[in-house]
Design a protein around this nucleic acid. Structure first.
Lengths: 227, 227
DNA sequence: CTCTCCTTCGATACAGCGTATTGACCAATA
DNA sequence: TATTGGTCAATACGCTGTATCGAAGGAGAG
């Protein structure tokens, strides 16, 4: 059969060039836009114009993808400063900033040991800054700051989401949590809570985070100086 | 047709008596045994000998079930002691103990605002203990302890799981994380990390938790005393 | 150069998920 | 007794992560 009447070979779809980097980037775009629940291997694959199982050439499971996402964010967290205290604070605040930019990070923080290269590099920077400190105290101290950051960020993001959820349709505000809390406090069963809500100054999220962090750093300074 | 040859009416299955309490208990049993992933509305329903949709009479969504589970655990956390410091420490350690008993709690801690009656009662107890403290400092201080506990517990449980996962089949140990870390440290790219791993005393989980908590409480004491 | 085998890869398929829909059933009313 | 209204749970939908397996492509032998 002549070329002219012979159909072209079936258009072999150019296999989209793939890499962990492209996959992770696509996943992060999805997560930034619509939260972690929006990250499914199928959606990531679709975004890359690829079948879902293609991804399994690059990762073994979805958990690994999430690990890669977290490590990718750690690349943006570069603590800096002079002396252990400044570096620890910088690390804490950079992590918090990253979580503001990628709220889904709050869902993952502390969920699995982070052993990716960027997380390790981050740890290295922090531990280097603690080089002058008694070596036995280094891990617990760095760990404590990490723990505080994890917990504080998670709570902050959780609250932000709750507010957003109730604020979205204000007509449903009536059925939502604000009035529930007001009603509950009004029962008088929680006088201490009530007092604080009524009388205390309202610190914003930045202040609250900084106050807790300062307390922790003060306590660490005292402990380090003691030795 | 005579009674004798007439069949009995179809056995109407006695509707299993249900309640939020029974549902939550069943869910907790599942989660304790096989982790949060093992908690599906279907499995909970099956455990109660009931169709999945029956549950929606008692809860509106799975998230609500998880909220109820967390609040049920808060019922077991009763901080006690004399003075704010003892109560805060008691709260922290009781929460940690609860997470040891219910590892899935670590997955949920800090994930959503806890407004259940037991969580509120818990907060009330803590805030009462902080009654003598400057009212403006109470929330940030209690929040900081909560944040630390959340983060520390999450990391601890995450590490415990990782160890368990690699320890389970020790033949696969070779392909697992331990050697990866050894190899990575051996590259020399992380000298500070290496130094700490090599030279530092290894605190166990109890000590590590306590050290961080002590730092935080020391810092809080200093801040409170200042005013 | 051709044929065969082996490996690689991704489409299909599966088991399970949360929950919207809807049809059936029961009790109360006309 | 007939009808209607409301309640409740069985079915069904769209989605998930990933095991399986058939097909296609490359390498090696005749």
């Amino acid at each position: 059969m002549l070329v002219w009447e012979r159909p072209e070979p079936p258009e072999r779809p150019t296999p989209a060039p793939l890499s962990r980097d492209r996959i992770v980037r696509a996943a992060i775009v999805l997560a930034d836009a619509d939260g972690l629940d929006a990250v499914s291997l199928r959606k990531v694959a679709t975004a890359l114009d690829v079948g879902p199982m293609r991804l399994y050439g690059y990762i073994d499971s979805k958990e690994e993808l999430l690990d890669l996402m977290v490590d990718a964010v750690y690349a943006e967290i570069r603590p800096a400063g002079d002396g252990w205290r400044e570096v620890l604070r910088s690390h804490a605040e950079a992590t918090r900033r990253a979580a503001h930019q990628h709220e889904w990070l709050a869902d993952l923080l502390g969920g699995r040991p982070q052993l990716g290269p960027n997380a390790l590099a981050n740890g290295e920077t922090v531990l280097t800054a603690l080089g002058g400190v008694d070596v036995d105290a280094v891990m617990p101290v760095a760990g404590a700051v990490n723990a505080y950051v994890t917990g504080a960020v998670r709570r902050e993001i959780a609250e932000r989401r709750a507010e957003r959820a109730t604020g979205m349709d204000q007509q449903r505000w009536q059925a939502s949590r604000g009035p529930y809390l007001v009603r509950t406090l009004a029962t008088g069963r929680f006088p201490a809570l009530e007092r604080v809500v009524r009388d205390a100054a309202h610190h914003d999220a930045d202040e609250t985070f900084r106050i807790g962090l300062d307390c922790l750093l003060d306590g660490i300074a005292a402990r380090i100086a003691k030795e």
